[in-house]
Design a protein around this nucleic acid. Structure first.
Length: 236
DNA sequence: AACGTATGCAACCGCGTAAAA
DNA sequence: ATTTTACGCGGTTGCATACGT
């Protein structure tokens, strides 16, 4: 498979963006959108590669970017989702409107991870795994229907619609009606006492992974309801 | 005040994959 | 059906600033 020969050409600028470059990029995208990142810098008159332009726009210049410190609620969401999903920063970012995957990744490595390490209980005291040192995919069940971040992205996008029963990549996604949770609960193979939401149970979630019931419910809620924000494309 | 170290964050790099040719 | 191209993601790097000695 060929790979994009991005940034190979000599003469393309690297490093921090100047205010002038930012203005050029903002102005161009506001008037033309960004249907083709690779062609954008040339058309806009920027000596940058498309990849660099995309990154700058997505992580810094987009009008819907929320700047400033993370709220306690946002941090808790990151911690909870990271516990369930591992380093799936883009998925986590999808549940926090205005926050970028890069920003969340930075916050995790600079603040949250350290904070958690300070308060981490010994492994033997908890059945809930954190995914910090192992890739999420390595924890997937052998028969897990999801194998790549792009598939999860597809799920996220599919979730943005009202009806999701059509499924993604052959996987039938359930309707979020009242019977949904009863089906999930009936799919749990745990023999733990009912109502113990802190305990790990194996649930029939599409990731084939373990998460506690509360986490599973929160996850689905975020996926189906907050993903709506994702597909509201800016108007140019 | 000067230096060394730690921290935070923006940006780059390389890979996987979907879409196009 | 195969190859090429472009995009998006996660890991990593490097610079600027803060902090401690």
């Amino acid at each position: 498979m060929g790979r994009a020969p991005c940034c190979e050409k000599m003469g393309l600028k690297k490093g921090p963006w100047t205010e002038e470059e930012d203005l050029i990029l903002i102005n161009y995208i506001n008037h033309n959108g960004h249907p083709n990142w690779r062609a954008l810098p040339k058309r806009a008159g920027l000596l940058r590669c498309g990849k660099s332009c995309r990154l700058r726009w997505m992580n810094y210049l987009r009008p819907d970017i929320k700047r400033g410190n993370f709220t306690k609620e946002e941090e808790e969401t990151i911690i909870k989702l990271h516990q369930e999903l591992g380093n799936r920063w883009s998925i986590i970012a999808a549940t926090l409107p205005g926050r970028t995957d890069n920003e969340i990744k930075n916050v995790w490595h600079t603040h949250l991870k350290k904070r958690l390490n300070k308060t981490t209980r010994p492994e033997s005291e908890t059945q809930i795994h954190t995914n910090e040192s192992s890739d999420f995919t390595q924890r997937e069940e052998p028969n897990s229907p999801l194998h790549s971040s792009s598939e999860i992205s597809s799920l996220t996008n599919a979730a943005s619609g009202a009806a999701v029963s059509g499924g993604v990549d052959g996987y039938n996604l359930p309707e979020m009606d009242e019977s949904f949770w009863s089906e999930v609960l009936s799919g749990a193979t745990s023999d733990l006492p009912a109502g113990n939401s802190d305990s790990v149970v194996r649930v029939s979630n599409p990731f084939g992974s373990e998460m506690n019931m509360e986490g599973c419910m929160d996850f689905w809620y975020n996926m189906f309801h907050r993903a709506e924000d994702l597909v509201q494309l800016p108007e140019f």
